[in-house]
Each structure stands twice: as structure tokens, then as C-alpha cells.
């Protein structure tokens, strides 16, 4: 019998869901290319939006996307959060920055880490670039990019975020 004398007021009730994720054709193609260090999205034939990672169809138009677009590894901060509390099973020690980033030439953001930055100075519109793992460690994973770090380029105005050409912000200016 337990030695506890305090009344029970809380219980731990974790829920674990076990999935087996199988990448469809478009995500599998994306992962195959990122294994080679290349970021590949898809362009919608109707609205011309570029999606990365691609899902094989345009969520706005509902049509299949097949045209591949190779994108650079420069991006813009669309939004971000400074994570201050530890997340179970996450090896990264807080505080760290998670950001929604839009690659140049893409019209949708993905989530990745930011580092080599002052957390307090991260801001919307900030320009960043991927820091890749050594090529020998590349696999079928977005983790091939270790994180994104700020680069010395002027901020992108909010109404241009997610609308930059593949050539990037300096090209547009």
C-alpha cells in the first residue's frame, strides 16, 4: 500500500496514437528530391500557386498538381513562436524558435526551426536561409535542413510574404 496521505486530485491520462505514414506520390517525390538536397514543390495548373511540400493537388482549385518547381533554400518568416516550455520527447532545449517559413517562389509556408539568431529579434518578414546537415547525413526527411538562420537582406513587407518570385526578394526589388 502507498505511504501517500494527500488526497488524489490529479491523474495522468496520456493518449498515444500509433500511425504508419505512407507518403503518397507527390510527398514521396518531394522526399526523394530532398534526400539529394533539392527542394521541390508543385505548381497548380489553374491558379499557378506553388506548394511545398506538395500534396499532389491544389487545395484551392481542387485540381491535380504535376508540374515540378525547384525552389531555392531562402525563405521569409511569415509567423513564429518562441517555445519556452519543454515538449515531451523533443530533444531541443527551450527557448527555441519555431517559424512558419515561405520559400522564395512558394505560396505556402511550412514549419521549421530557426537558430543562429537572437530569439527576441526574430520578426515577421525576416529573411532566412537553410543550414543543411552534412551531405552524408541526408535522408528522406525535412530534417536534412538543420534549421534556418537570418541573412542580411531587407525585410519583406507583410503583403509580399508568400508572393516572392523564385529569384527572391533582391530580384523583386
Amino acid at each position: 500500500m502507498s505511504e501517500d496521505t494527500e488526497a488524489v486530485t490529479r491523474i495522468e491520462t496520456p493518449v498515444y496514437l500509433q500511425y504508419n505514414f505512407t507518403a503518397g506520390r507527390a510527398p514521396a517525390r518531394f522526399l526523394e528530391r530532398i534526400r539529394q538536397g533539392v527542394l521541390t514543390g508543385q505548381r497548380c495548373p489553374r491558379c499557378a500557386n506553388v506548394y511545398i511540400p506538395p500534396r499532389g493537388s491544389c487545395p484551392a482549385c481542387g485540381v491535380p498538381t504535376e508540374e515540378e518547381v525547384v525552389l531555392p533554400d531562402k525563405a521569409t518568416v511569415q509567423s513564429f513562436t518562441v517555445v519556452a516550455i519543454p515538449i515531451p520527447n523533443n530533444p531541443i532545449k527551450p527557448p527555441f524558435v519555431i517559424a512558419n517559413l515561405v520559400l522564395d517562389g512558394a505560396n505556402i509556408s511550412f514549419i521549421h526551426l530557426m537558430s543562429e539568431c537572437e530569439n527576441s529579434e526574430v520578426h515577421i518578414g525576416q529573411r532566412v536561409q537553410a543550414v543543411w546537415k552534412p551531405e552524408a547525413e541526408w535522408t528522406y526527411a525535412m530534417d536534412n535542413i538543420r534549421y534556418f538562420k537570418p541573412i542580411d537582406e531587407p525585410d519583406v513587407p507583410v503583403d509580399r510574404i508568400g508572393r516572392l518570385p523564385i529569384g527572391g526578394w533582391e530580384d523583386e526589388q
Partner: peptide, 17 residues
């Protein structure tokens, strides 16, 4: 491309009052 498949676990570490 190859068929790519991977197991993963989604956990919700709830504590209830």
C-alpha cells in the same frame, strides 16, 4: 519514387483534475 513508409507516434500527455 520508392514507396516511403514510416511509423510514428502522436502523444497527448494529459493530466486530468
Amino acid at each position: 519514387p520508392d514507396v516511403l513508409s514510416q511509423a510514428f507516434e502522436l502523444g497527448f500527455t494529459y493530466t486530468r483534475s
